[in-house]
């Protein structure tokens, strides 16, 4: 039983670590601010969840795992608000997103 928990922890923590490193690369190599926000959001959601669930498997059913769950809930509530505030501030400041995709027909309208 302990072995299964250990293996599950290994898998979850390794997946979270790989996702975090991908996030770091994404922050470096994506072309503009808006696409980088997507990469940052990846670390906020799934990587946090994977690593903290992996840790809580090791701590067992105790106050520690409840605290881990509380951290996850806090991050899930606060991170979209921060991302939205960042995107909104960049948009109001007039940063144009680089659109080379299919949806370029709707140009961003300027509102103060």
């Amino acid at each position: 039983m302990d072995l299964i928990l250990d293996i599950a922890t290994w898998v979850l923590l390794l997946a979270g670590s790989i996702l975090l490193i991908i996030t770091g690369f994404g922050l470096l190599r994506l072309p503009d601010l808006y696409t980088r926000i997507h990469a940052g959001g990846m670390a906020d959601t799934l990587a946090t969840f994977l690593i903290f669930v992996g840790l809580s498997l090791q701590s067992g059913l105790s106050l520690v795992s409840v605290k881990l769950l509380l951290v996850i809930v806090f991050i899930f509530f606060t991170s979209p608000t921060a991302s939205y505030a960042l995107a909104q501030a960049g948009f109001v400041a007039g940063l144009k997103p680089k659109l080379d995709g299919f949806g370029a027909r709707e140009q961003p309208k300027e509102d103060a």
Partner: peptide, 19 residues
């Protein structure tokens, strides 16, 4: 804004690191 985004991402990763 890129720098603020990086600061925010570093903060989230610090939470993970502390845990």
């Amino acid at each position: 804004y890129d720098r603020i985004l990086s600061a925010n991402a570093i903060g989230t990763k610090t939470v993970l690191l502390i845990g």
